[in-house]
């Protein structure tokens, strides 16, 4: 197999990223949050759900609560640290699932064309005609708010988009002569889709996946903010803003810090994607 080639190429990409300052900033932000998420139990000063009644008297940032406490007296820094776990587990799982389904459907639609394409395309059309939020609302309303259901909702929204992208690239790549050569030596359709076509679509897909992680982070935050995300009390950044937004005019820090946290992670993903795109144009 050509796995060596793929790994070498991925490594090459990471090495090249050094030459894109924007990409480096993005990588730094993302790696920072991954680090925080992994070592949350070690870094977080308090239990994220512990109510400190003393802090309620003056919840503003202090030596005890570095970033202050929220309206229930919980330490904001600890909640932000633990909240990064939620996002960095839910978002990648959702994106990977959407990718597996989207790639398979897109490959089939683009490779077989004809009625397979028609059916897949129609279904994608119908799902795409829902504004994302409407789909989120329906799925969560139907299934109830939980991490799994947020993943389901993201899969519903992202899969048809990925299917479209992969289908478009497959339609183009299937006309390459090396695909004809593979058919002529008797390769199966599955081999051609997965070994001849998919690896050559990886460039744009890596960039898209990175962007999509950012958008998914936003979606998780938005669902949390709208009260459709994780059920309380587990910390999630969007939910933290929702719970404290009413006190905005008195204690703006309660909303500001989680808002800044989610923003920095999404900006990280976006800049990283831009850096990847930039270097992929070079080779």
């Amino acid at each position: 197999m050509s796995n060596d080639g793929v790994i070498a190429l991925a490594w090459n990409r990471i090495r090249l990223l050094k030459e894109s300052p924007v990409g480096m900033v993005g990588a730094f932000l993302v790696l920072f949050w991954i680090f925080v998420a992994i070592f949350a139990p070690l870094i977080a000063p308090y239990d994220p759900n512990a109510n400190n009644m003393d802090a309620l008297i003056d919840p503003t940032p202090s030596a005890v609560n570095w970033l202050g406490a929220d309206n229930s007296g919980r330490d904001i820094l600890s909640r932000i640290i633990w909240g990064s776990r939620t996002v960095l587990i839910v978002a990648p799982i959702a994106v990977i699932c959407a990718y597996i389904i989207g790639c398979l459907l897109g490959l089939m639609a683009g490779y077989y064309r004809g009625w397979v394409d028609q059916v897949i395309n129609r279904i994608a059309d119908i799902l795409l005609s829902f504004p994302a939020i409407v789909l989120y609302i329906i799925v969560i309303m139907k299934l109830g708010p939980s991490a799994i259901n947020v993943i389901m909702a993201v899969i519903f929204v992202a899969t048809p988009q990925i299917t479209r992208i992969v289908r478009g690239m497959t339609l183009e790549l299937r006309e390459r002569d090396y695909v004809a050569a593979a058919k002529m030596r008797g390769e199966t359709a599955l081999y051609i889709m997965l070994v001849e076509i998919l690896p050559n679509a990886r460039g744009p897909l890596i960039v898209d996946a990175c962007l999509r992680l950012g958008y998914t982070t936003i979606a998780i935050g938005v669902l949390g903010f709208l009260g459709l995300g994780l059920p309380p009390p587990d910390p999630d950044w969007g939910g933290m803003v929702k719970e404290t937004y009413a006190m905005m005019t008195i204690y703006p820090h309660m909303s500001l810090f989680p808002a800044a946290a989610i923003t920095s992670l999404v900006v990280g993903f976006s800049l990283l994607a831009d850096g990847m795109r930039e270097i992929s144009l070079r080779d």
């Binding site: 924007v22 935050g221 903010f225 803003v241 929702k242 703006p252 808002a259 923003t263 900006v267």
Partner: peptide, 13 residues
């Protein structure tokens, strides 16, 4: 890139 990466509720804040 940066402005599209700020969720609406965060920029609202």
């Amino acid at each position: 890139i940066v402005t599209t990466s700020v969720p609406e509720f965060a920029s609202g804040v």
